[in-house]
């Protein structure tokens, strides 16, 4: 498949497209936690690294089929999401942000000292199973399932928690369970992206999954629009392309992100496509006809 695509698309763009796809998957996971459910998580790279290392180690040592390796990585991240979800539920806002930063940092330090993961040197020689077709097939499936979830009873209850937790409870929503669900599914997607990333890069090391990575993914959700699938996709596209297109952006990443967020907060506090939902677009379009 990719050989076919490669005839038409330059290898460089193919590479960027793959990164965009991986970022969309991870950002949609974080969108579920932060954008939809309103739980500020600043440690998404922690889940990404769990997925990346788990999948890579399984591929390297057990020669497992690719899909099993990345599923195992995603499942590992999801179990941690579930476990992290439980104590963090009593926290909100800044406290939760601090705990999630701490969690990701602990994971990073763990991998820095993790023998099977090559410690600070990292893992290399990971087979490059990830290709354009696989990534985008997964992207499409994730978007469809995500949309199904958001426009269902469960999805609406996640939005309700973001909007007003006490009112959500008064509607019979077990907010604790729903938050754990959001964390579990969101980290699953983080881990899935991590596994794909590892199998594209040949080489991973703990520094790939630091605080800046978490912020980068968070920025995609915030830029595009919290809770919006099209918004998150757009955010992932823009923020993957920007450093590639503009060298200056790559060099002054922090400045760029900071400045971008400030401008965004002033002009579009809800993100570029804040609260734009596929479903609403369909409905509006339908009504106009």
């Amino acid at each position: 498949m990719d050989a076919f695509i490669a005839q038409y698309i330059d290898a460089y763009y193919l590479r960027i497209m793959i990164f965009i796809g991986i970022n969309i998957i991870m950002a949609l996971g974080l969108n579920l936690i932060t954008g939809v459910t309103g739980q500020l998580s600043m440690g998404h790279a922690g889940f990404m690294s769990l997925g990346a290392y788990t999948a890579a180690i399984i591929s390297l040592h057990y020669d497992a089929p690719f899909f099993l390796a990345i599923l195992a990585g995603a499942a590992m991240a999801a179990s941690f999401g579930f476990i992290i979800g439980i104590p963090t539920l009593r926290l909100d806002g800044d406290d939760l942000a601090m705990v999630t930063i701490g969690f990701a940092e602990i994971i990073r330090v763990f991998f820095l000292n993790f023998e099977p993961g090559g410690k600070a040197v990292g893992l290399s020689g990971i087979p490059q199973y990830t290709d354009f077709a696989t990534v985008w097939l997964i992207v499409i499936v994730v978007i469809i399932l995500n949309a199904k979830l958001l426009y269902s009873r469960v999805g609406r209850s996640l939005f309700a928690i973001r909007e007003n937790e006490i009112a959500a409870q008064s509607c019979g929503i077990n907010t604790t369970r729903m938050k754990i669900l959001a964390f579990t599914v969101g980290s699953f997607l983080g881990g899935l992206g991590g596994g794909l990333y590892a199998h594209y890069m040949y080489y991973i090391n703990p520094q790939d999954f630091g605080f800046m990575k978490s912020i980068e993914i968070l920025n995609m959700v915030v830029l595009g629009g919290m809770g919006s699938i099209p918004g998150t996709v757009l955010g992932a596209v823009i923020l993957t392309l920007a450093p590639e297109m503009l060298r200056i952006v790559a060099e002054y990443r922090l400045l760029f992100y900071g400045g971008m967020l400030v401008i965004l907060m002033i002009f579009r506090p809800n993100g570029l496509l804040g609260d734009v939902r596929i479903y609403d677009l369909k409905k509006r379009w339908g009504k106009k006809r």
């Binding site: 399932l145 199904k148 979830l149 269902s152 009873r153 469960v154 999805g155 609406r156 209850s157 939005f159 309700a160 959500a168 509607c171 019979g172 929503i173 669900l181 599914v185």
Partner: peptide, 16 residues
Amino acid sequence: RIGCHGVTHSGFWASV
């Protein structure tokens, strides 16, 4: 619709 949450039952998998 969210108000109907307490009288309905479909869970995560049913929704997804």
